[in-house]
Design a protein around this nucleic acid. Structure first.
Lengths: 156, 156
DNA sequence: CTGCATGCAAACCCTTTGCATTGGG
DNA sequence: CCCAATGCAAAGGGTTTGCATGCAG
């Protein structure tokens, strides 16, 4: 259960204490490239550190999110997902959400059009509305392979 | 409080009863182009139809969403927003979310790059993962004009 | 008339918070 | 040592559900 030391350093650098729960949560996130819900993170962490409570998971995730070490995602199913920023930053990083079973897959791509599009939209946004864009996300909705077989589509 | 009759027709066509609460909810949505939360919809509807309950609002919104008359959005603030599909479909339609004050603005644009980008990404998604894309949404995160003035940025 | 739709209130789920205790620096 | 961080349990906020009643078709 080692895990990247530079992440821990960024915590202490930001003035936060390097506690056991925080290290384990960081490690769990580092070992799970998928988006984990708070409950899933709790479950994983609990195996190494049984005494942990959900409140600490939430507080730590909030801390990590505010510090920028973790990204928080909302896919519309009522629970948030979390992912290491360093993992998400490995490339443009979007998501495909199956409107039937709720499955979410990461979608790292490398298409030139995106840079131009985002730049153009960002320019328009700042000119028309005075916004300063820091990031963007693209969500695709549709049916995953498994759900295309079945007939009745349960739309969200 | 008239409101578009074709919308009501789509309800009856789908086999649902044309009740008073449903008509009023549809009218409220038709008169408010912004994204409304369930609570805001309840509040508006309540003025015309005081007897209505939140449960009916939620059940109706769910019905309308499943029928495709209404789009449901999640911007990450813990409550869902709803908007008439016919309104949202007036053009490519994305959102800018201020990470400080939570303000959301609609962002209807008309940039050619988007079609190409989405097509390219959709192709990749279907080829690599077997997904069938029905729709997509782009979220921009940043600071709105008002919040750029203030110093401390409260990240989500 | 018949059963879908409503209203009310309780239940639910995820997340946040209060408070005494613990442990990192 | 001291205060930030934890754990527990209770509270909170949005959404869903059970059940008796009401109304559209």
């Amino acid at each position: 259960m080692p895990g990247p030391p530079w992440l821990r350093q960024r915590l202490t650098n930001a003035g936060f204490r390097l506690t056991w729960p925080r290290q384990v949560i960081l490690d769990v996130l580092g070992q799970n490239p998928q988006h984990l819900s708070a409950e899933e993170i709790f479950f994983h962490v609990h195996q190494f550190y049984p005494g942990i409570g959900m409140a600490t998971v939430y507080r730590t995730l909030d801390l990590l999110t505010r510090t920028g070490l973790v990204f928080k995602f909302d896919f519309g199913d009522g629970r948030s997902r979390y992912e290491l920023a360093s993992e998400a930053a490995k490339g443009p990083h979007h998501h495909m959400i199956c409107t039937r079973c709720g499955r979410i897959i990461d979608f790292g791509h490398s298409i030139d059009e995106e840079g131009e599009l985002i730049a153009a939209l960002g320019k328009e946004l700042s000119e028309k509305h005075g916004f300063k864009i820091n990031s963007h996300r693209i969500h695709f909705y549709g049916l995953c392979q498994d759900c295309q077989s079945s007939s009745t589509e349960g739309k969200r």
